[in-house]
């Protein structure tokens, strides 16, 4: 029984190879169309992964900035007693209470899970920071009293903790604290990026589905042509006792061989184009914008390979179903 199955398998393979050999021109034509289809699929996957990767770098924007309230505002707006010294000689002792407040807030923040680093910028440090990073308006900044600059606390989060809900939760907890004027984290940006990532995912899915269907259609047409051309042979085989499986299985093998060759060709083509892209220093150009271009990893290639194989099987199934 096993030896008979091996004989059958051997025959199926022989017939498939014989079929390929007997229609070299037709198979090359089908192979080129399939290669093109798979190339588009792989190229799309490469583009999609790079876009997605780039988007994720934004998603992991792990900074939150807290602006402390001006102490005069705190005293006027609230009637509660504070331990902070805000006497009339405020200017002289200004830095000191802010440090106390900052230390108090930092201690609270330290208790939050996922906080990596906390920096405190006094008004003078904020001023220096502005001078350093905005050289164009240095002359204007020079005329401003550094004490008018806000006291800032900058929080860095552990990227593995970052999520929309986590950041929103931290934001609300900080916002409810006394002495905090407002909390800034790129919430709007975060939302936009999340939307864009979602959009990219959906578009990716739709495009991949479209490419998959077109790939099925290519396989369907290629195998249908083979069947139409071999209709006479199929009829003879049936008359001498061939089962439907005996006729169909070589077609599946033929289609799978075609898909594998087409896939390998398209992968080589993509790899060559990618290397040319890198060779001509486009990578340097992109890295200037902090865009890191990556090639498909094994898993991505495997996904496309299975999609390619599945499309060829479905194409064969639909085309052969009509005739058997």
């Amino acid at each position: 029984m096993i030896s008979q199955k091996i004989n059958y398998l051997n025959n199926y393979l022989k017939i498939a190879i014989l079929n390929i050999k007997s229609n070299i021109a037709g198979n090359i034509f089908a192979l080129s169309i399939m290669s093109f289809s798979f190339f588009i699929m792989l190229f799309f996957m490469l583009s999609y992964i790079n876009i997605y990767n780039y988007m994720l770098s934004f998603e992991k924007n792990n900074t939150m900035i807290i602006f402390l309230k001006n102490l005069e505002d705190t005293n006027t707006n609230t009637n509660t007693n504070t331990n902070i010294n805000t006497n009339t000689n405020a200017d002289a002792n200004r830095a000191h209470p802010y440090k106390l407040i900052a230390a108090h807030i930092i201690n609270k923040i330290k208790k939050f899970k996922g906080v990596k680093k906390i920096y405190y910028y006094s008004d003078k440090l904020s001023y220096k920071f502005m001078l350093k990073h905005t050289p164009n308006i240095r002359t204007i900044l020079g005329k401003i009293n550094p004490t008018y600059f806000p006291h800032i606390i900058k929080i860095h989060f552990n990227p593995s903790y970052i999520s929309k809900i986590y950041l929103a939760n931290i934001y609300l907890r900080l916002k409810s604290m006394r002495h905090i004027k407002f909390v800034y984290y790129s919430k709007l940006m975060e939302d936009k990026i999340n939307q864009f990532v979602f959009f990219t995912k959906m578009m990716g899915f739709i495009v991949l589905l479209f490419l998959f269907i077109s790939s099925v259609f290519v396989s369907y047409s290629a195998i249908k042509l083979i069947i139409l051309r071999k209709q006479n042979d199929i009829e003879i085989l049936k008359l001498i006792g061939a089962t439907n499986n005996y006729i169909k299985i070589p077609m599946y093998i033929e289609s799978a061989i075609g898909s594998i060759i087409a896939f390998v060709l398209s992968l080589i083509l993509l790899s060559v184009i990618f290397d040319i892209f890198i060779y001509y220093k486009f990578n340097n150009f992109l890295s200037f914008f902090k865009i890191n271009i990556i090639f498909l990893n094994g898993f991505d290639i495997l996904i496309i390979f299975f999609i390619a194989l599945l499309s060829s099987f479905l194409g064969t199934y639909f085309s052969s179903r009509k005739f058997f």
Binding site: K5, Y8, N11, L18, D233, I240, G241, T243
Partner: peptide
């Protein structure tokens, strides 16, 4: 597209011999 031998062998191949 098959030789005389291959044509005659068809029936046996189909039977899994």
């Amino acid at each position: 597209n098959r030789t005389v031998f291959q044509n005659v062998a068809l029936g046996l191949e189909i039977s899994g011999v």
